[in-house]
Design a protein around this nucleic acid. Structure first.
Lengths: 117, 117
DNA sequence: ATCATTGTATTATGTGAATAGTACAAGCGG
DNA sequence: CCGCTTGTACTATTCACATAATACAATGAT
């Protein structure tokens, strides 16, 4: 996994978002075993505590589960994963439209700009 | 001006974004006088130092200018303001497309989801 | 001339994110 | 059984953001 962070958002939030994305698009597959907290932390060059915090939150969302001393795994619920992808996409669509509205562009104008891109 | 902040981004960054938006869409007009730092801070319910920090940065961008003891004003450069609006819109478009690409949607599929919205 | 308001600067304090370092129970493999 | 790896927990420290409380020079209005 390739990690990159910017400075304006807490790192653990960005980790959550990036892992969610990886799950949603199948870069992590249902049932996959994750690297250990320490390995992931090392890979992302963050503190293990920070990685742990992000993983715990993903677990609360049901996207991961833990087997006590054996490791963490991606949920096997493929429906949940498909729903996640759709949800993330919908969030992007709604965010885009609302931001463009704030900037004074109608949905039609926004769509036009997309086409011209 | 109506202020609202979320917790995941530094407040002074959010202030910058919101004022930029207000300038871009003409809620603040070219040459307008702003409220004083203290008044704006009070209105937004933040510390004057925080407001000051945001305003200074906007000034560095050339969107505001200061007349030492008389107050702060929006730039009179209407071309710059028009360019700002276009730039913010372009950022939204590019961000939207790139995020949708990451989620595995082509530009055409993204445009389709927009239409269906 | 006086005074209030302007932006600006400074110091101290509080808070949450992130790091560093350490510790421990649980289980798997040898 | 032993040792390694797992997740997890805890304390201490650093850092940036934010706040609180002042202070001051410049200037426009009274």
């Amino acid at each position: 996994m390739l990690w990159n962070f910017n400075s304006n958002t807490p790192i653990y939030i960005q980790i959550i978002e990036q892992i969610k994305l990886s799950i949603a698009v199948g870069e992590y597959k249902a049932g996959d075993k994750l690297l250990s907290v320490r390995e992931l932390a090392s890979e992302a060059e963050v503190n293990p505590n920070t990685m742990q915090k992000a993983l715990s939150e993903l677990e609360r969302d049901g996207l991961l589960y833990t087997q006590r001393t054996s490791g963490r795994f991606i949920t096997s619920d493929t429906l949940k994963i498909a729903a996640l992808r759709k949800q993330l996409a919908n969030e992007q669509v709604e965010n885009f439209i609302s931001k463009m509205k704030l900037l004074g562009y109608s949905s039609e104008e926004a769509a036009e700009m997309l086409k011209d891109h």
